[in-house]
Every structure is written in C-alpha cells, then in structure tokens.
Simulated assay, not measured.
Amino acid sequence: MVAALPKPIADYVEANARLDIEAMLKPFAADAVILDNGHRFAGLAAIRTLFEEEVILVKAIFTPDGVQRESGKIIVEGPAYGDLKGSPIRFTYDFTLDNDIITMLDITA
C-alpha cells in the first residue's frame, strides 16, 4: 500500500481490501458524492448501493500504487482486481477531503 495516503483514504482502501462495506462507508460524509465513470451517487444510501453492486458483488479490490496531491485533491492510482471483465483494471481515484472526511470521489478507469 502507498504509505502517504491520508487516514480517511487509507481507511477506505483497507476496508475495501476486506470487502467490508460498513467500514468502506465510514470515511465518507453523509452528503458525499461519488462520480463513477460519469454516474453520480449522492449520499450514503446511494454510495452503499454503488458499493454493493459494483464492488462487493464482483469482489473488486483497489490496490493503490501511486498518490499525488493536486489543487487540494488527493489523486490515487492503481489496479482493481476481482471478478470483473478485464481484471485487473487500472483506476484513478480523485478524492476531496474536508476535515478528515471524504466529501467527493471521482473514479475513472
């Protein structure tokens, strides 16, 4: 794992490695937004549905291998492995944090 990840992002990545949906949701603000390849998921209920259908169902585990800070955002890159077509697939996760909580995540493949 990339050592320089801020705690909420590291917590999310570690929870994802265990496919622990409750722990994956914990670092997100109640009104957080995820943009997943152009699809918008706002609020924890929508994010839970995204995780259930696109992460847990296919056992998709994101393994960061690079991180950079840019314009107040933390950009994390790496492959995701699992039962998904084309695995592993390389993703970019563009996180926005506010007071140690994830408020926005833009995911692109």
Score class of each variant (00 low, 15 high):
14 E>Q: 07
80 A>I: 05
77 E>I: 04
48 R>H: 08
107 I>T: 05
72 G>D: 10
103 T>F: 00
25 L>I: 09
50 L>V: 13
32 A>G: 03
41 F>S: 08
88 P>D: 06
85 K>W: 10
57 L>E: 12
81 Y>G: 04
76 V>I: 10
44 L>M: 05
97 L>H: 01
15 A>P: 12
15 A>C: 05
97 L>R: 01
30 A>S: 15
91 F>G: 00
84 L>T: 04
42 A>Q: 13
54 E>Y: 08
94 D>F: 12
64 P>V: 04
74 I>K: 00
50 L>K: 04
40 R>H: 07
57 L>H: 13
6 P>C: 06
52 E>C: 05
85 K>P: 14
60 A>V: 01
76 V>K: 01
55 V>W: 00
12 Y>G: 00
34 I>R: 01
6 P>D: 03
66 G>E: 15
93 Y>S: 07
41 F>Q: 01
25 L>Q: 01
56 I>A: 12
35 L>N: 07
56 I>T: 08
92 T>I: 11
107 I>L: 15
79 P>S: 00
41 F>A: 12
94 D>W: 10
37 N>F: 13
87 S>F: 00
27 P>Q: 06
90 R>G: 11
60 A>F: 03
45 A>P: 04
84 L>Q: 14
27 P>L: 06
70 E>V: 05
14 E>D: 14
100 D>A: 10
17 A>K: 09
80 A>L: 11
44 L>H: 03
93 Y>P: 06
66 G>S: 15
11 D>F: 06
60 A>M: 03
25 L>T: 01
43 G>M: 04
74 I>C: 02
107 I>Q: 10
10 A>I: 07
47 I>F: 00
70 E>N: 08
9 I>S: 02
84 L>P: 00
37 N>H: 14
82 G>D: 09
88 P>N: 04
47 I>C: 07
99 N>T: 13
2 V>A: 14
88 P>G: 02
61 I>V: 09
95 F>I: 03
77 E>M: 10
54 E>R: 12
79 P>F: 00
62 F>G: 01
21 I>P: 01
32 A>L: 06
17 A>N: 13
26 K>G: 04
38 G>K: 05
62 F>T: 04
86 G>H: 03
18 R>T: 08
